[in-house]
Amino acid sequence: MSRVQKSVALRWLCTLAALAALVIVLFPVYAVIVGSFESTETLFSGTYYWLPHAATLDNYRTVIQAQSGSVLTSLIVGLGTAALALVVAVPAAYALSKYRLRVTVILVSSLLICQIVPSIVLATSLFIVFHWAHLVNSYPGLIIADGTYAVPFAILVLRAFFFSLPNELMHAARVDGASEWQTFRRIVVPLARSAVITVAVFAFLNGWGDFIFALTVLNGSTIVPITLGIYTYLGNYSTDWGAVMASAAFAMVPAGVMLVVAQRYIASGLTAGSVKG
């Protein structure tokens, strides 16, 4: 009896520990949501309120007026990054897993190295290269830059998935007279659906959340993603916290949506040994 009681107590102790960890993990998100409804007076009162104090929608009014264009911009960039990653990575991953090519080992090693290269190294050069290629301050330029997070990761994850498809499948298609492209398009891609979704979700989040390339290859005038929008609210001496919190709340929406809708894809993508940032 006491043994059972002890084990029950231990279980609840674990729950308590997990709860404490979750409070720390989730508190910043909670703080953004509460902060986004606080009035400017509350935010600058010098006291932190754990619960909403004199809630208002003023911050959202300000931000929707000033930042709805930015939300749209970030959506375009996120979707563009996902599209780029898929167009480039799906066929490449297929070639690197199902064709015996001499470059496979070199290319896969380069992809592993690419994931190590810090973004600032690329950003410095890309700014000048883009200047020369007329890609500064353009959607294609930003999407190409943001693809540097997503493309190597996408190829490696998809390649690992393609290994799990039996070769007989492709042989059978060829015997039936399908061309290499038809085999890829009609047989391989549909079967890779879940891996493709995983890769697309991550590429979208990379494009949506990118800050360093938005800061460097855009000039901040016409194309302003939400991340850059938040940054411009940060003043050296006076930060408009209400507006910052409301736009941060918008910036967190895709992560929340993905966590609810695409939970299993996220979990599988993360354990695939992802490298972010």
Partner: peptide, 22 residues
């Protein structure tokens, strides 16, 4: 708990920086 613990990983990094500043 296990599914929620990955939340920090999904947020844009600049947002995390700004939240901690707050």
């Amino acid at each position: 708990a296990r599914s929620l613990v990955i939340v920090p990983w999904l947020l844009p990094l600049i947002v995390t920086g700004v939240i901690f500043k707050f």
